[in-house]
């Protein structure tokens, strides 16, 4: 640091004072079909690559989505009377806009579930269970938190689950609590998760 140099401290004031606010122009999410759901018993909104991978392998298997928005990173699947929404984070739309567009589904569903995951290191409590491979607790941030906030705001019931997992790849052991949870919230598990070992994409440790 040079003497006299002005060092601006890091701050929680995220807003840049010089930035002018623009009028909001709603962008088109480019859904493949119209968002007009029929009857929905259970709506599952799924976030993070870990849980999405489990849903793809164990619940949806080779099912094709009934609707999708590539721009927003959202895929919608129909399982009999239940609807599954998989969300892969894209920067173009904020979670509030996605929840806004999913309102026809949320308002129609009898039960709403949000499922997400987080690294185990981020679990902030003294009462962590002994089995540290993976365990399930409630409360979260992100699109699933937005889902629950919307449901609370509209006096709707909603259950939100966050599975804390080690950053190790998913295998049959650390995926087990998730599959147990899926079964308990009415999902049919078509196959159990088996880890597929892949060669590293670089030769650093060869």
């Amino acid at each position: 640091m040079v003497f006299g140099e002005l060092v601006i401290p890091t701050t929680r004031a995220l807003w840049d004072d010089e930035e002018e606010l623009q009028e909001y122009v709603q962008s088109d999410m480019e859904w493949e079909h119209e968002l007009s759901p029929d009857v929905i018993d259970n709506l599952y909104v799924v976030d993070t690559s870990t849980v999405i991978k489990l849903f793809e392998k164990c619940i949806l298997t080779d099912l094709a989505p009934v609707n999708r928005s590539k721009r927003a990173g959202v895929r919608i699947y129909q399982l009999k009377q239940d609807t599954v929404v998989l969300y892969e984070h894209k920067t173009e739309f904020v979670s509030g806009e996605i929840i806004q567009s999913l309102r026809p589904f949320i308002d129609k569903a009898k039960n709403v579930y949000g499922i997400t995951s987080s690294p185990i290191a981020l679990y902030q409590s003294n009462d962590a269970p002994e089995d540290f491979t993976c365990f399930v607790r409630c409360l979260s941030t992100g699109i699933t938190a937005n889902l629950m906030s919307y449901c609370i705001h509209n006096n709707r019931g909603c259950q939100l689950f966050i599975g804390y997992v080690e950053q190790a790849p998913l295998d049959s052991i650390n995926s087990e609590p998730f599959l147990r949870l899926f079964g308990e919230i009415g999902l049919e598990i078509k196959s159990h998760y088996n880890m597929i070992l892949q060669a590293p994409s670089n030769n650093l440790y060869m």
Binding site: V94, S95, G96, E97, I99, Q100, L139, S140, T141, G142, I143, A145, N146, M148, S149, Y150, I152, H153, N154, L160
Partner: peptide, 9 residues
């Protein structure tokens, strides 16, 4: 609730 509010639970 509003889409502009960064969510938190």
């Amino acid at each position: 609730w509003h889409p502009a509010i960064i969510p938190f639970i």
